[in-house]
Amino acid sequence: MLANGIAYNRFDVSGLPPQQQLLAYWEQLGHIIEVVPSREQVRQSFICINNRYDIGEFRISDTYTDHVVIERTVARISRDNVRGIGFTIFLDGAAHLATTLARKREYPVCGGSVLATDFEQPIRLQRQACRYITLVVPANLLRHVFSDPWAIHGRALEPSRPATRLIVERARTLVENLRYMPFEDAHRRLAGLIELIADAFGEEAGLSGSKRAVGRALMFEYTRRYVRANLHGYELSPDSVVESLGLSRSTIYRLFEHEGGLGAFIRHLRLRAAADELVRFPNVPIKDVGYSVGFKSASDFTRAFRRAYEMTPQEMRLNDYRYPHAEWR
């Protein structure tokens, strides 16, 4: 605890033997994510310096690490209670790559970019050696812009945007001065930074910044509510949504372009619901779990689940996942 009342923790692996440094980093983050190393990486030295500050309901960290692949899997998500929205502000580095697993979409990011992740959805991040700031906030703080915070997952702010440059500069200044600020001042500045980030992502998604964006935001909220309310029905499809809500196909496409289309969004919601039920109800047959979330056959469910999460429903239930892209585990 700092003298100003801010909870502070520093984590540095430099005092450990080289072969223990990456594993120590893994253990530090193990309650949230998996680290996916190669055999060679484990044998080598690894740099990780993390300064974490807890300020009321907010958490902000200033970190430097070597190159690493990290992943938050659906198996972990369905077994823990870690929730919220994370913003990674890359201060340097190049050619980072984020992959949202269920949507099979890749998002290249570089120094000066801001990446948003929803802890309730799986993601894989190949991060080059860099310094970055991580900000974790409750999802409800974004609902004035994103009525469904799931929609922010995987979005990124480009470094060429003036708002992004302002966010990066304010975040850098904040973490470098937190230990000298009064608690109330630090909390106020952090809340202001979050507001700035939310507005920037809202504009990037076309949900704020103009009268037209307000109308789009209303359609965005209405459509997602309808899909969630009818998720378990076999008849739910892009065609049924278009017909029931009276929206044009072009409007639907624009609303769900980030998700890969409305069909992909429906499938993603069904698979996430199924993953939770596989863990919550271990004695229910897998085929019945698939039927309960709207899949029409057991084979369709298993095939879609494996394609999205790189594991079968049975492996997910048994927590028996092996990383096919890792050399050592």
Rank of each mutant, 00 (worst) to 15 (best):
P149W: 03
A151Q: 12
A151D: 09
I152P: 03
H153V: 04
G154F: 13
G154Y: 04
R155D: 06
R155H: 05
A156G: 03
A156R: 15
E158W: 04
E158I: 08
E158M: 07
R161K: 11
R161T: 09
A163K: 07
T164I: 09
T164A: 01
T164L: 08
L166Q: 15
L166K: 11
L166R: 12
V168T: 14
E169G: 05
A171Y: 01
R172N: 03
T173K: 05
E176F: 07
E176I: 02
N177I: 01
L178F: 10
L178K: 05
R179A: 14
M181V: 02
P182S: 08
P182M: 07
E184P: 04
D185R: 13
D185G: 04
D185E: 15
D185L: 14
A186I: 02
H187Y: 13
R188E: 11
R189L: 15
L190N: 12
A191C: 08
G192E: 14
L193V: 08
I194R: 10
I197K: 05
I197C: 07
I197Y: 08
I197W: 03
A198I: 09
D199S: 11
A200M: 11
A200L: 08
G202W: 11
E203R: 14
E204L: 15
A205P: 09
L207P: 11
